[in-house]
Structure formats: structure tokens, C-alpha cells
Design a protein around this nucleic acid. Structure first.
Length: 712
DNA sequence: ATTCTGAGCCAC
DNA sequence: AAACGTGGCTCAGAAT
């Protein structure tokens, strides 16, 4: 105190600051929480922090002794969250085991297994699920099978080796016992994501028969807008049965084979329990839409076998060609990169913001973006550097997305590339493709050359001629289109002739076989109409003025009033009901936004109204493709061909190279006869290739084969 | 080091 | 005046 008198004001301030600091240093835990929770935390972090605070307050969680002296920080709180999560997992698992329903039965001996199988044979439908060592259907193995027998209301989990518990039966014993049941078509089976389990059974020599229902595609019909079709999520949302995923319960890298049997029982048996309940829930709701139910049972369910066959065929990749092609591409890319860096400076050429700045500097003009098609292409003629940049972009895209990666995706066990085909991956019912990093449906021409037929086989592809336009002709009943298809006249050329007031022949093909400008233009306009394109986009894609584009669309609707009327009718229906039907009631496309009462322009509502007519066309075309694919799969089985791929309006098979004209006729018949758009006839083109993308028309192929035979 | 998002681009 | 439907993958850049 004496000392204080001797201090000047500045020292006094310092002392006070130190005192404040000291106070902060010993801040109470409550104060620390106020400080931490007031920070700008991301929403998930804030939730974690609150959970930690509550757990500490409740005494379940305490600070580590090593941290005791340190100021309580956000980082420490988040570290403690991990501890909390583990604690919660343990208590959750303990509660699950504690609450194991009495009708969940663990099967550990052959006698019980025999009884389960006897009971299952007495059922008309059962639910089945597999637990495995992983997700690779060519590598992983079954560690347990769940079965639900509904009339006895029992849910069995049958663990087997390699489950790490000596009480379990050997896998060969369990699977040999189950084989007759699983292969008997008289006992229907319900799965969630049947493709996976059927593949797993194939891996163990079991050919599943009697697939009755798959709750995953069924849910896609009941609500295509569902953000995820994961079983646990659906059970939580639709059955009021809170269900944690495998990762939530066991952590990320966990192995089911390591899960203790009491936990494995309650988790595994619950899988078929909720699958069965979801099945009953879905039947109840689909019964209210009999046409959807019929479509589901006659198309979506049988399609599963076709998709399994297609995914298993896989693709042979020409690795040598890919390597050589890659090397020349890399050289070209390096050269272009050097030139571009000289002109633009040491920027990252793949970074749109950096590129935009550099290009604005070099060209002296403001750019809207670095969009290659819209912005850069028109500038390419004026600035050679931009032409180079476009070439660079094209090459790097092709190289990094396709040429360099396809060989890396080859499966080490099968030696082939296996893409996934998701039959309900889109809201309209089209296939999507992905998984394993390979989307088979967007392979550009130059990448297709990497896909080669196996020795002794050729790739035979068939596409539907003007599939969506034929569908639109039937939906709208537009007489000009109906007549064109009935007479075998090219609809684009016919419309072009009418619009440009020129003879049909001058609007069809050029002497060299390429499309005329008139036909190309009309094709763009037709698609523009089906996609609900506005005049702005049409003007830029056709490089015409807005006024011209507006006139084009207006003329189109005046000339073809039935199309106009169908679009307006469909939109009115969507506005009133919040959905549209696809394929005469086979599917629904739910568009809740269309129903919103609004004044003025609301983007979401307008978008929903564009989606309505488009969904009818895209969706029914997909139904035609799927229906045809099922028949093609059967033809493949009969003739020893392999289903290879499908790309929306196209399907490919592998055929022995000595195929006959009769084989082609059968293929063609499947394409033409499987699904009709009313009275509009179908059309198909068939091509043969050893390398995908290098196909020749089948007539040409036979001609070439004949001349070769003549020589030898 | 992983995870997420937007821009961009491939297909029909 | 604007406003092109359905997907999946790669990369950059930011967040964690």
C-alpha cells in the first residue's frame, strides 16, 4: 500500500490491467462457458458445446486432470465432446441390449437354425438382410444373416464366422442351411436395397429367388423428393422408430464381425424388423395408388435382376491405350500450360477467380465469369490466348476426370471397372450412375474409346430414335408430330421445313450426311420447349437476338397449339394438385412449390411449373427404357449375351462376335415392342463396336464381315 | 488431414 | 427483363 503512493499513473494503469488479466485467468467455469458460447461458433459446434456443458453440469463429464490449471477453451470443450460421444455410444448400446425385444432371437446352434428355416418355409413372404465385413460385393463376406418371419412375429439374427466369437456357427454351415430357403421362389423375400444382399449371396454361391419387394425403390415411388433413402432414416421418419446407423453406433472404421453378439442381435434383428414394418407401411400407401403399385411390381422389382447382371458384367478398360493417350495429353497440356503462364502470369489456371482477374487484365474488358461455353468461346476468335485456354481446359478436364482415372478404377479382383446404376437415382425415375467414382452416363466420346469388348465379344448398342419427342407427341397428341412418326418422317426436318418454308429435303441432311442448319436449329427449339427454356437462353444457345428467340417460341406454339395446350394443362394440374402423373399414373412427380399461391415472379414456383411437363416426358421415357431393359435382360439370358450398360435412351450388350442377323432382329424386336407411347411407333438404331464410341451401323458390320470372309 | 460448397463441365 | 430439365465428378477455397 505504501508503495502505491510512490507509483506514477502509468504504472498504476499497468497494475490495474494485470489485475484484470489475473481475474480473467481464474475465471469461473460458468464465465468460461458464457465466453465460449458467445463466440461465433458454427451450428454443429454450438450444439456440441451445449451438450458438453450439460454433461459437465450433470456430472457425467469432467476436465482432464492435466488441463485443470489451464483456462477452459473452446478447443478443450470440443475435445471433451469426443469423450462424451463415446460415453453416449456406450450407454446407448447398453440401453439397446437392455431393451432387446423378447421376439429378437440369436441363433447359435444348428437345431435352432433348422427350426427358423422350417418356420420361414411356412411363410409366403419373409424379410432378409445380411451383415458383412464391408461394402465391396466382390471382396467382402457375410458375417450374419437376419430373417423376419412375420406370422410368428420373430426376428432372427444368425451370426456366423468370421464373427469373432467362438459360439457362432461356421459360415458354410449357416449358408448351406439357408440356401434352399433363399433359392426357393415360393417364399417371397423383402429387402432394403436388394442389389447389395443378392450380390452378397451370389458371392457365397446362393442364387436368390422370390424377390418380392425392395423397400428402397418403393420409397422412391412414395416420395421421390426424399433427401436420403437410407433404411435407418426412413424407419426414424416413417415408422416413428428412432434408429441409429452403423457408423453412429459403432464409429467409422468398425467391423461388424467385432461387435459383441448381444449388440449384434439387437442391431441385426432390428434391420429386418424395420424393413418388414416399412414394407407393410409401403403396401398400405401404394394400395391407394393401384397403378403405381402395379408399375412397381411389374417394372421396378424385376428390373433389379437386370441391374445386378449389368453391374456385374463390368467394363474392360484398354489400359495400354489409356497410358499412351495420357502421355500425349500430358505433353500437350504442359505445352499449353507454359504458353498460358507466359501470357497470364503464374496463376492457378484451374481457379476461376484467379483466371478471371488475369483474363480481364490481358483483354482489357470486364468478364461476367470464366464460363467456357458462354463467355470464353465467343472471345476465342479474337484472342489466341483464350483459344489456347479453351484447349487447355478441354484437355485437363478430359485427362483428370476420365483418361487418367478410369484405369485406376479397375477392380483388383474382377479386373474390370464396375459402375453403379441407380434405377431411382433421379426424381423423374431416370437412372443415375456413380459410386466407385465412375459415372457411366457422362463418359465423353474420347473416353469411350477406353472401353473395349472382351476377346470374342462385341459391344452392340441400341438407342431409341427421338425417344422424348415421341413421348411428347403422344402426350400432346400434336397432329403434325403424330403424323410424322406414323409416316416415318423425321420430325425435326418436317418442323424445320414448315418453319423456314423450304422443301423437306433441304431441311434434313446435307449431301455429306451431316445435319442441315435448319434441322439442328429445330432440334434445339424442340428441346427448348420440352425443358421450358426461356427466350434468353434460347437466344444465346442459337446465337440469335432475344427478339428472334421470342418469335421462334411464339411461332412454335402458334404452329403446334396442341403442344402449347398440353404444357398449359399440365401446369394447371400441377398448380391445383402440387404434383403431375407420369406414364398414365405409373409414377408421381411431386411439385409442392407449384401449388404456392403467389403474386409476381417467384423462382421456385416457376421452376416447379417447368418441371411438370418435363417430368412427364423424361419420366415416361425412363419407364420405356426400364421396361425394355427387363426384356433385354431376359433375351441376354436366353442367348448368352451380357447386359453392359444403359444411358437414358440407349442400352448396350456384349454379344459373341459371330452373332447373326436373327440375333439383331430379336434385339430390335425387344426395343420396338416392349413399351409403346400410345399409337406412336418406336424407332431404334443398332450399332456394333469393338471399342465403345467407334460403332458402325449393324448393316455395315455385316457387309464388312462378308467381305472379310470373301478374302479369307 | 478431412469435410463441405460452389463453379464448371461431362452425359442425355 | 428474365427464367434449361435430370444427374455425378473434379477442383479450389474455406471451414473444421
Amino acid at each position: 500500500m505504501e508503495l502505491k503512493l510512490t507509483l506514477n499513473d502509468a504504472s498504476n494503469d499497468r497494475l490495474q490491467a494485470a489485475a484484470v488479466k489475473r481475474t480473467a485467468h481464474v475465471e469461473s467455469l460458468d464465465e468460461a462457458w458464457l465466453r465460449i458460447l458467445a463466440m461465433k461458433n458454427a451450428a454443429p459446434d454450438q450444439a456440441k458445446l451445449l451438450a458438453v456443458r450439460d454433461a459437465m453440469a450433470g456430472g457425467q463429464l469432467g476436465r482432464a486432470p492435466t488441463s485443470a490449471g489451464k483456462r477452459f477453451s473452446k478447443a478443450e470443450a470440443l475435445r471433451m465432446y469426443k469423450e462424451l460421444a463415446a460415453l453416449q455410444r456406450e450407454s446407448k448400446l447398453a440401453a439397446m441390449v437392455e431393451g432387446t425385444p423378447a421376439n429378437y432371437v440369436l441363433v447359435l446352434d444348428e437345431q435352432t437354425l433348422a427350426n427358423v428355416i422350417r418356420d420361414a418355409f411356412a411363410e409366403s413372404v419373409i424379410a432378409v438382410d445380411t451383415e458383412t465385413t464391408g461394402l465391396d460385393v466382390f471382396v467382402d463376406v457375410i458375417v450374419g444373416v437376419s430373417i423376419t418371419t412375420p406370422s410368428t412375429d420373430r426376428h432372427y439374427y444368425i451370426p456366423c464366422t468370421p464373427t469373432k466369437d467362438e459360439r457362432v456357427l461356421p459360415a458354410d454351415v449357416v449358408l448351406a442351411a439357408l440356401k434352399p430357403l433363399l433359392e426357393d421362389a415360393a417364399v417371397g423375400k423383402v429387402f432394403h436395397n436388394a442389389i447389395y444382399d443378392i450380390n452378397m449371396f451370389k458371392r457365397h454361391g446362393i442364387e436368390l429367388r422370390g424377390l418380392a419387394w425392395d423397400t428402397q425403390p418403393a420409397m422412391a415411388l412414395l416420395n421421390e423428393n426424399e433427401p436420403s433413402f437410407a433404411l435407418k432414416r426412413l424407419a426414424t421418419n416413417y415408422l416413428g422408430e428412432p434408429s441409429d446407423t452403423f457408423a453412429e453406433l459403432f464409429g467409422k472404421g468398425a467391423q461388424f464381425a467385432d461387435v459383441p453378439l448381444d449388440i449384434a442381435l439387437v442391431y441385426g434383428a432390428k434391420d429386418t424388423d424395420i424393413t418388414w414394418r416399412l414394407y407393410e407401411f409401403q403396401r398400405l400407401h401404394l394400395a391407394k395408388m393401384p397403378k403405381v403399385l402395379d408399375y412397381y411390381l411389374t417394372v421396378e422389382v424385376p428390373l433389379i435382376e437386370a441391374v445386378i447382371a449389368m453391374e456385374r458384367t463390368g467394363f474392360d478398360i484398354d489400359v495400354k491405350y489409356a497410358r499412351e493417350y495420357g502421355i500425349t495429353m500430358q505433353a500437350d497440356i504442359a505445352r499449353l500450360e507454359g504458353e498460358l503462364h507466359d501470357a497470364l502470369g503464374g496463376i492457378n489456371l484451374n481457379s476461376p477467380p484467379q483466371l478471371k482477374e488475369a483474363l480481364e487484365r490481358v483483354t482489357g474488358q470486364k468478364l461476367e465469369s470464366t464460363d467456357a461455353k458462354r463467355v470464353l468461346k465467343p472471345l476465342g476468335a479474337k484472342y489466341p490466348i483464350i483459344a489456347n485456354l479453351l484447349k487447355y481446359k478441354e484437355l485437363t478436364k478430359l485427362y483428370s476426370t476420365y483418361i487418367s482415372v478410369l484405369p485406376e478404377k479397375i477392380h483388383p479382383v474382377t479386373g474390370k471397372l464396375h459402375a453403379r446404376f441407380n434405377a431411382n437415382g433421379t426424381v423423374t425415375g431416370r437412372f443415375s450412375s456413380g459410386g466407385n467414382g465412375v459415372n457411366l452416363q457422362n463418359q465423353p466420346y474420347d473416353a469411350r474409346k477406353l472401353f473395349v469388348a472382351p476377346d470374342g465379344y462385341v459391344i452392340v448398342g441400341a438407342d431409341f430414335k427421338a425417344q422424348e419427342i415421341r413421348c411428347a407427341a403422344n402426350k400432346s397428341r400434336e397432329p403434325v408430330l403424330i403424323d410424322a412418326f406414323a409416316d416415318g418422317v423425321d420430325p425435326y426436318a418436317l418442323l424445320a421445313a414448315k418453319h423456314f418454308k423450304k422443301p423437306y429435303d433441304e431441311c434434313y441432311k446435307n449431301p455429306d450426311g451431316s445435319d442441315t442448319v435448319e434441322r439442328k436449329t429445330m432440334k434445339v427449339v424442340m428441346l427448348a420447349v420440352l425443358y421450358g427454356m426461356g427466350s434468353g437462353t434460347l437466344s444465346s444457345s442459337l446465337k440469335i437476338t432475344m427478339d428472334e428467340a421470342r418469335k421462334f417460341l411464339a411461332d412454335f406454339f402458334v404452329s403446334y397449339p396442341a403442344i402449347d395446350a398440353w404444357i398449359k394443362e399440365t401446369q394447371t394440374f400441377a398448380k391445383r394438385n402440387g404434383y403431375v402423373w407420369i406414364g398414365d399414373g405409373k409414377r408421381k412427380r411431386r411439385l409442392p412449390e407449384a401449388k404456392r399461391k403467389t403474386t409476381g415472379y417467384v423462382p421456385e414456383v416457376q421452376r416447379a411449373l417447368r418441371q411438370g411437363p418435363n417430368a412427364q416426358i423424361q419420366g415416361e421415357s425412363a419407364i420405356q427404357t426400364k421396361t425394355t431393359l427387363i426384356n433385354l435382360h431376359r433375351l441376354c439370358q436366353e442367348r448368352g449375351w451380357r447386359l453392359y450398360a444403359t444411358i437414358h435412351d440407349e442400352m448396350l450388350v456384349l454379344m459373341p462376335e459371330d452373332f447373326t442377323p436373327a440375333d439383331i432382329a430379336a434385339y430390335e424386336a425387344v426395343m420396338i415392342d416392349s413399351y409403346q407411347f400410345g399409337d406412336v411407333p418406336n424407332g431404334t438404331d443398332i450399332e456394333v463396336a469393338r471399342r465403345w464410341g467407334e460403332g458402325v451401323p449393324v448393316d455395315e458390320w455385316f457387309k464388312q464381315r462378308k467381305s472379310k470372309e470373301a478374302i479369307s
